[in-house]
């Protein structure tokens, strides 16, 4: 029961009974890998208002604190939806194409 079922290519015998998972399994499983665009912040324009932080539906923005004065997107989990860029009152966030 300790092994999260989200592990790639799990063997039949390794799956927990009932196909369950412990909470927090996405800490190990990065869910942002299918993003096609990423938010890129222009810190010159950023006024540290927190709109990106509050509007992000996946909670990937982290408050960098009063000294740094900006919010940073965790790209391991950002899906690239662009809500932050749309809501930013200063147009400080640009959705930029992911290059493979």
């Amino acid at each position: 029961m300790t092994k999260p079922t989200v592990d790639a290519m799990a063997k039949v015998g390794d799956l927990p009974m009932g196909f369950t998972a412990k909470p927090g399994s996405t800490v190990a499983f990065k869910t942002g890998d299918w993003r096609s665009v990423r938010p890129v912040l222009d810190r010159e324009k950023c006024i540290y208002c927190g709109f990106c932080y509050f509007y992000c539906p996946d909670g990937v923005y982290q408050d960098m604190g009063k000294d740094e004065k900006y919010y940073k997107a965790d790209l391991d989990f950002c899906k690239g939806c662009g809500i932050c860029a749309h809501e930013c009152p200063k147009k400080a966030i640009t959705m930029t194409l992911e290059e493979v």
Binding site: T5, D7, M9, L15, F19, T20, A21, K22, P23
Partner: peptide
């Protein structure tokens, strides 16, 4: 706590 009723993609 456990999650029951998960997504199981092509890998599992």
């Amino acid at each position: 706590p456990i999650s029951i009723g998960l997504l199981g993609g092509p890998e599992c």
